[in-house]
Design a binder for these strands. Structure first.
Length: 140
DNA sequence: GCCAACGTTGGC
DNA sequence: GCCAACGTTGGC
């Protein structure tokens, strides 16, 4: 199962917004970047991803689960843009800050560090485990 | 709020 | 098809 990272500004759509929607989750709509769209097309149901607060917060706050594969974005006029659906799975015991990620040599290749503008990103298995470890997340 | 980095657009 | 101009994102 693959891992991803979703970025959102908490003022616009934060972790609390997503948790409020419960099991039904939400479309990850509004993405207007081809690279991000192509990444979403690779996602499978059951994949998990980090939820990152950009601009204010600057930290990974929770884990989301992909509950629908890529489909047309309902907020786009033409059929050009697509999105997946996600639901909140679990809040991290401790948020993992961008500073922590940047200062950890093992995470120097994370897209979050290398291409901070990309709003949907792949996360490697190794990166996933390291971030969970930093978050104090106990394996279940 | 500033601005660097990046992506997109459009004139040539 | 190049590249300057423009718009947007997101860290600072």
């Amino acid at each position: 199962m693959a891992h991803w990272l979703f970025k959102s500004e908490p003022d616009v759509f934060g972790w609390d917004h997503l948790t409020a929607l419960g099991q039904a989750g939400s479309e990850w709509d509004g993405v207007r970047n081809y690279q991000a769209r192509n990444i979403m097309r690779q996602m499978a149901i059951g994949d998990t991803g980090f939820f990152y607060h950009s601009r204010t917060g600057l930290e990974i706050v929770g884990i989301v689960e992909v509950i629908a594969t890529a489909h047309p974005d309902s907020t786009a006029q033409d059929g050009k843009w697509e999105c997946v659906d996600v639901r909140a799975l679990k809040r991290l015991p401790r948020p993992v800050t961008l500073d922590q990620i940047k200062s950890d040599d093992r995470l120097s290749d994370m897209v979050l560090v290398k291409n901070s503008r990309l709003s949907v990103q792949p996360v490697s298995d190794a990166e996933w485990q390291i971030v969970l470890e930093l978050a104090g997340h106990s394996p279940d």
